[in-house]
Amino acid sequence: MIEALGLGKDFGAVRALDGLDLDVGEAEFFGFLGPNGAGKTTTVHILATLLRPTRGSARIAGHDVVRESLAVRKSIGLVFQEPTLDRDLTVEENLRFAARLWDLPGGTRSAATRIDELLRQFGLSERRDSPVRSLSGGMRRAADIARGVLHRPRVLFLDEPTAGLDPRARRTLWQFIRDLRAASGMTVFLTTHYVEEAEPCDRVAVLDRGHLVAQGTPAELKRAAGAGSLEEVFLARTGRPLAEADAAAAPPGRER
């Protein structure tokens, strides 16, 4: 479903990503683990056609991310690290806006049905007429994910979906994502710097400073590194603890 071959990206003289090979299968739950600044978001943005790769190539659902960007964007959903909803519009107005952008088939009636369904699924039915700015962080993120899956994409990219949320909101969100996967069978590509979020993935790729350092099922990775946790896998492969690498990288200013 997602294939990348020798993918690389430079920003000026900075080599943000280099030699990335990926092969993610249909309905797979794929974790992309690494500290801040490792190149996770850069990878997601290349796969989502928002950035052009400097080297290599990638295909999503058989479509080339550079030459067939519209076809790629049709088959993916992307929930960005930062919010994308219009804070002055209500939850429902935002989803209606998205339904028009994604040209939901069958006219507005079927879009309305789909929006109702998602609002229920994400526990937002009672807040459908509230402006997004009045929602809690967890609810905003849930609405953003609802926006991302509105058009039933075959591949869903979740870029650090729980960043900045409290533990309770995080648990709720994970339940939504589990339900979503069970109901839809879509491929999910998750980036995270929390090992506990990568643990339930079918397969995990570990990224550090723009390079892939390990790839496999969590069990395989632990076995190969002789480690008891993914945290120790990162330490064994890079010589640094994940949390320390995270603190050393300039964290992107998420708050505004």
Binding site: L50, L70, A71, R73, L78, E82, P83, L85, R147, R256
Partner: peptide
């Protein structure tokens, strides 16, 4: 600044 442009750019719209 608010991020809405990101939604527009990832939509399957030229």
């Amino acid at each position: 600044d608010a991020g809405v442009l990101r939604m527009l750019l990832v939509a399957p719209v030229p």
